Structures are given as structure tokens and as C-alpha cells.
Amino acid sequence: MLTHLTLHRSLWAITGVLTLVAAAAGLWRPAVYGGVVGEELIPGAFSQDLLSVAAALGLLYLAITAHGGRVKRQIVALGLLGFLFYAYGIYVIERAYNELYLAYMAVFTLALWALVCAGAHLRRDLPQPSLPKAVRLVSASGAMLQPLVFYPLWIGMLLPLMRTGEQIDSLYSIFILDLCFIMPAFLILAVLSYRSHGIGLLLLPAIHVLGFTLIFSLAVGELVKPLFDAVPNPSAFWTDLGLSMLFLVLGTLHLTTMRINATRTVPVSEDSGAVEADTWA
């Protein structure tokens, strides 16, 4: 799927190592968030670090194994990068100025530019991916649900702030990241998949991976609240768990049923990303 695969695997590995250091430090000493994160948000930061450690280990594994024709592993790596872009974008935008802030900026930057490079290095001669029609429609509809829900929700919350000029002290990063980056990605890939466009079919599972990790982090955040003398919200937990499982099911279903119509063979070169077409499925 990607050309210059050695470059991408190197970026994944570096991002994974830096994430592992930053997230493990937060887990080892949650007090690092004291004074820069609201006390009520520390359970969420802790759960995000847990998921970030898992994502970092996943990226390191994929950096080692996602070679040759293992296209689906490359797709999962892009989804994990999207999660790290979002997770560390929160810390960067919210000005979490602790001793790890430069590491947060590094992960945020690496994840962003690794995704940009992936877009620039998508193979232009990939055979057309295919999905059963029912899976394609279900997968695209699950992705479309997000902008349909969150655009009205977040804009509805922004309008009163715009009328009064009030500047909120925390979580304003969510508006920026969701409205400017994540929801457009869901929308574009969903529309492309509805139209059976190859890029949409190929990359839609990555957005499901991102959705799963983000929302599952919120569910875990409810579970760890007692560690910080806070009371879990059962309604929020079950809602977040259900939505994260929806993303997990959609992504798994999409990846396991997606096939590449291998109509020809191209030269094998790991660094260029070219492999025998019949191994891409």
C-alpha cells in the first residue's frame, strides 16, 4: 500500500518509543499532571496513558512486521497514529506544561507528519479493493454516524461561547481536533466508501481503529476513577464501551472481508512498497 515503507516503519518505531516513554512516565507518576490538568480530568489522562502504551507497543510491533504485502497491518498502524495525534494533540493544545511537554509535542508532530507522508506515499497503481456490499454500507454508515452526531453537538456548544466571547479553560482542544481534523476524516472516508472508491475502502478501517482507541480510553477512564477517589458514571461507561465496541466490530469486519482484486503482478521491492499483487489481500 505504501511506498518508501522503510521510512514509514522507522517513523512508526520512533513514534512508538517516544510515546512509550511519555505514557509510561504518566502511569508511573500521575502527579506529573498536577497543576496542568484539572483534578477531575486526571483519571482520563491516566486511562489515555494506558491506551497510549498499548498503541505504542502496537506501533513497535507493526514497525517490525508490516513489511511487503501486509497491507492490513499498515492500515492498523495509520489508525494508531491517528489516535496518538489526537491524544497528544490534547496535551499540546491544552498547554500541559509539565516536564514531559516537549515529548508530547514530539509525539504529536511525528504522528501528524507520519500520516501526511503516508498520504503522499500511497501507491498509485494498487488494484481496486473490494468488500461485500452489505459490509461496505455498514462500515461507511458507522463512520458517517460520527460527523452526523458530533458536528451538531459541538457546534451547539460553541455557539453560546461565540455569542458571549467566553473562553473556557479546558477541553477546548476537543472542538479543534474533532471539528477540524477527525470529523472531516470520518466524513470523507465514509462518502468515498459509499461510492466504492478504492482509497475510501482501503483507509476506512484506519478511522475505525482511531475511533475504537479514543472511545475505549473514555470507558477505561470511568473504570479507573476509584483510584483517584472519584465516582464512576455507569451511564457514561456503558455508552463509551458500546461505541468503542461498535468501532472494533466495524474495523475487524471491514479488514477481514476486504480483498484486493489482484489482476496483475508488480515487481517486488520492500522499500518501494511494491509486492506481488496476489499477496495484498
Results as ranks from 00 to 15, higher is better:
6 T>D: 07
9 R>W: 10
15 T>Q: 11
15 T>D: 12
21 V>W: 07
21 V>G: 02
23 A>G: 06
37 V>H: 00
43 P>Y: 02
43 P>E: 12
43 P>R: 05
46 F>G: 01
51 L>K: 02
57 L>G: 10
66 A>H: 04
73 R>F: 05
74 Q>C: 10
78 L>M: 12
83 F>H: 15
89 G>S: 02
92 V>I: 02
92 V>C: 00
95 R>Y: 09
98 N>C: 13
100 L>D: 10
104 Y>C: 01
104 Y>E: 09
107 V>P: 11
110 L>G: 06
112 L>S: 07
114 A>M: 13
114 A>K: 04
117 C>V: 15
122 L>I: 13
123 R>L: 01
135 V>I: 15
144 M>Q: 01
149 V>N: 00
151 Y>M: 04
158 L>P: 00
159 L>D: 06
160 P>K: 02
162 M>V: 12
171 L>P: 02
172 Y>C: 05
178 D>G: 00
184 P>M: 08
193 S>V: 04
194 Y>S: 00
205 P>N: 02
213 T>K: 01
216 F>L: 15
218 L>D: 07
220 V>T: 14
225 K>A: 04
226 P>N: 11
228 F>Y: 08
233 N>Y: 01
242 G>Y: 03
245 M>W: 05
247 F>H: 10
247 F>Q: 11
252 T>W: 03
252 T>F: 11
259 R>T: 08
261 N>Q: 14
268 V>Y: 13
270 E>H: 12
277 A>V: 13
280 W>F: 08
